[in-house]
């Protein structure tokens, strides 16, 4: 049973619209290498020009962040699921006020918006 790589929605249009791909590999790095070989247009969205994973690309093996494992050398075994999860960042440069954590509850408007 190979390793399954889950492809996040922003990247699916570069992966033939697939939401996952399977590879026979032994490490996370190998899986990402195979993925970006098969779907070359994915590469620049996952890796910097010098081949490092971009800071906002998070990779998990069965819910464990590879930053706390062996990063791209993290070994995989048959049946593992590798997930690529975005983190999102933005903002204005040259702007020195600090942004405090807000008081509003997470997802606070959703139920009101849905009604």
């Amino acid at each position: 049973m190979p390793v399954k790589v889950m492809i996040p929605s922003p990247l699916r249009s570069y992966a033939g619209k697939r939401d996952s791909a399977e590879f026979n590999v032994r490490t996370v790095g190998e899986a990402l290498g195979r993925l970006t070989t098969e779907f070359a247009d994915l590469r620049k969205h996952l890796f910097t020009e010098d081949g490092k994973l971009r800071s906002f690309v998070n990779v998990y093996v069965n819910d464990e962040d590879i930053r706390y494992l062996a990063k791209e050398n993290t070994p995989t075994k048959d049946g593992d699921t590798i997930s690529i999860i975005p983190s999102i960042a933005g903002g204005v440069e040259g702007y020195n006020r600090h942004c405090e954590r807000g008081e509003e509850p997470l997802f606070g408007f959703l139920d009101a918006a849905a009604s």
Binding site: I85, I88, A89, L106
Partner: peptide
């Protein structure tokens, strides 16, 4: 069709920025 307002989880950057952690993206 819907919005999900999030808490700004800024790190200690001196600039005014926003970030959404992978956990919150998953949520």
């Amino acid at each position: 069709l819907e919005l999900l307002p999030l808490v700004n989880r800024r790190d200690d950057s001196p600039h005014n920025r926003f970030s959404v952690t992978a956990d919150d993206v998953r949520a």
